[in-house]
Computed example of a mutant assay.
Amino acid sequence: MRRLYLSATLIFWLLVTAFWAGSLWLPPAEKNAAIAVDKSISPTELAKHKAPENCWMAIRGNVYDLSAYLPEHPSQPDILLPWCGKEATDAYNTKTKGRPHSPYADELLVKYRIGILASGKP
């Protein structure tokens, strides 16, 4: 029984060490995501994405595809729909009621970022 315990413990720690060593060779996922999302999106292109199933918004110079997030938003999706396809920084910063979004909301936005808003008018 003692031999089984020692063997299982040794195998466990060898696997933990292997996973840790393997993670050292992989590049961090955040760096890969940052490289992929530096696409410049024009205001004209942004304006084409104004439907609930295809909802892009520009917030603080970045463009986000919030289509998948609409059903998950804590309030009704109808609050977000008027901002689809538009620059929505003021609405985001004030929740259109004078209250800022939480730091958690800022962190959540990162995963929906698809590019940066190019200068110019639609």
Rank of each mutant, 00 (worst) to 15 (best):
K97C: 07
E87K: 07
G61K: 05
P103G: 11
A21S: 10
K111T: 03
P52R: 04
K121V: 14
F19S: 06
A58S: 11
M57G: 02
R99H: 10
S119C: 03
A118G: 11
I41T: 01
A29T: 03
L24R: 13
K111P: 01
I59K: 00
L80K: 06
Q76M: 08
S7W: 11
A29V: 09
A34L: 14
P28Y: 00
C55G: 02
I79C: 12
P28C: 01
G98W: 08
H49V: 01
T96M: 13
D90K: 15
P103H: 07
R3A: 14
W13P: 02
L4V: 14
G22I: 02
P71M: 05
G98A: 10
L6Y: 13
R113I: 07
A47K: 08
A21N: 09
V16E: 04
C55V: 03
A91Y: 05
T94L: 09
H101N: 14
E72T: 00
K50Q: 06
S23G: 13
F19Q: 11
P103F: 02
L24N: 08
G115Q: 05
N93H: 08
P74I: 05
R3F: 09
H49G: 01
P71Q: 04
G85W: 05
R3K: 14
L109K: 09
K39V: 07
L15S: 12
K31S: 15
K121M: 09
N54S: 12
Q76N: 15
R99L: 14
N62S: 11
W13L: 14
